[in-house]
Design a protein around this nucleic acid. Structure first.
Lengths: 99, 99
DNA sequence: CATTTAATTCGTAGATTTACGAACAAAGGT
DNA sequence: ACCTTTGTTCGTAAATCTACGAATTAAATG
């Protein structure tokens, strides 16, 4: 029996988003991006006491989960929420908590 | 500089809940419990194709995160949502997504 | 063409997660 | 007393996560 036959696609997607949000730094980044539309890696790096490379990894995780996207704006990279997926996450969590 | 001086208490708590929800099995369990008030470990074990010990670990994580609580009802254990923390999580995520 | 800037990728180490089966615990039934 | 039922805990292995500094990339600038 496959796990995927019992656990719905929605549950799996919600879990994927939850996992991406499951670290204080990533929660901070997403909340920042949901307030102001975009920001640069350096802006975050200035605020948080972690190595740039560590931040980069967290950003990559958020990107892999589909919650953010980066746009090259040399010499920097502008990060924004991926609105489409953000809305999906929002909906999934709304349904999840309201059931 | 401490991470805790930049990242709010709320963000850290939200991240903690998100992390607990960041696995399909745990998402499934919580959704089950939010629909029907309580259930037994065996009920879940019958549905999901994972070892009982694995399920037990997931339940422990949810318990440690404060999302569920177990009540002994021998020979079984009745698991229910921890309503207080569930409501907190609900609120945190609501605020998080609505910002 | 070398330098500077901004950020990623690489290499690595330690911690945590996920999973399983075997062993164990606790109470009720035989 | 022993067996059954229901779950947990233990031991273990593989995978993933978190973090850092060093090395690298890529384009603009001097």
């Amino acid at each position: 029996m496959e796990v995927g036959t019992v656990i719905t696609e929605q549950q799996q997607r919600a879990a994927r988003y939850a996992k991406a949000l499951g670290h204080p730094v990533r929660m901070y980044v997403i909340e920042l991006l949901s307030k102001q539309s975009c920001c640069y890696s350096g802006d975050i790096s200035d605020e948080l006491p972690i190595a740039k490379s560590t931040l980069s990894q967290h950003l990559k995780e958020l990107k892999d989960a589909g919650l953010i996207q980066g746009e090259i704006e040399l010499p920097r990279i502008k990060y924004c929420l991926n609105r489409e997926n953000w809305n999906e996450a929002k909906l999934l969590f709304k349904q999840f908590f309201d059931v």
